[in-house]
């Protein structure tokens, strides 16, 4: 896997959509956390960009591990393709996600996930399945595959969305750049505040558990994530230009 090739694709995609009709939502976040796998807190930052065109959304994301077990300028890449469909007036999002991780000097990880999600005013749920390939970069022949992992994310918002501000709780075994096995849930608190129609601030906190049910389960870690996202609606500005012609 050529990491730079993926990064270049990300940049080209960004440039392409900025000159097209898409709605672009870039999001930048910083995450500070602590886990049982590190003696000191970790710090990472990520850029995730959504490009929405009609009922399709394409998302790309990259992460830099600034302080971590393995600091790296580019430690993860995420690519998502999503289609919104309607079933009996209900919006359902079907998505495919590819995720690449470089968690250490030796180990690499490919992930492929298929997800179905829906929202109902205050409640949002995603369910899906996931395939993982773990391998050592110097010996990729001997890889380990985990197939058909169950993925889930359920959250409940205090206010019916969309609202100027909101706060919600949830449980999930996935994150932007991480797919856990189904027995390793995260419990989270999410919140956001819309500064303007286009600009949104968010703060999320997660509690991570080292397993569930058939272990003698221990606390694993937590993180606090602050993010900022903005909506760049190229379609509206393009339409305005056409009207004035």
């Amino acid at each position: 896997m050529n990491v730079f090739r993926i990064a270049i694709i990300h940049i080209i995609l960004l440039l392409w959509v900025t000159t097209s009709y898409a709605v672009i939502i870039p999001k930048l976040y910083t995450e500070v956390g602590q886990t049982q796998s590190a003696t000191s807190p970790y710090l990472k930052t990520a850029l995730i960009s959504d490009f929405t065109l009609a009922s399709y959304t394409f998302q790309s994301g990259i992460v830099s591990n600034i302080v971590d077990y393995y600091p790296s300028a580019l430690s993860s890449i995420r690519l998502l393709a999503e289609k919104e469909i309607r079933v009996k007036k209900k919006k359902i999002n079907i998505s495919t996600v590819y995720l690449w991780n470089k968690p250490g000097t030796m180990i690499r990880e490919h992930n492929l996930a298929f997800l179905v999600g829906t929202k109902h005013q205050k409640l949002a749920a995603i369910i899906g399945t996931h395939f993982r390939k773990l391998y050592a970069h110097n010996n990729s022949k001997n890889a380990i595959f985990e197939n058909w992992n169950l993925l889930y994310d359920v959250n409940y918002w205090l206010k019916a969305t969309p609202n100027v501000w909101n706060i919600g709780i949830g449980m999930s075994n996935m994150d932007y750049f991480l797919y856990n096995q189904e027995t390793n849930p995260h419990f989270y608190l999410s919140s956001y505040y819309k500064l303007t129609n286009a600009l949104k601030l968010s703060i999320d906190g997660r509690y991570k558990s080292a397993g569930a049910l058939n272990g003698s389960v221990h606390y694993y870690g937590y993180y606090i994530r602050t993010g900022i996202s903005c909506i760049i609606n190229k379609k509206k500005s393009h339409d305005r230009k056409n009207l004035t012609k």
Partner: peptide
């Protein structure tokens, strides 16, 4: 259904 370590660990 058996528990594994977290993917980060």
């Amino acid at each position: 259904g058996s528990t594994n370590p977290t993917i980060e660990e």
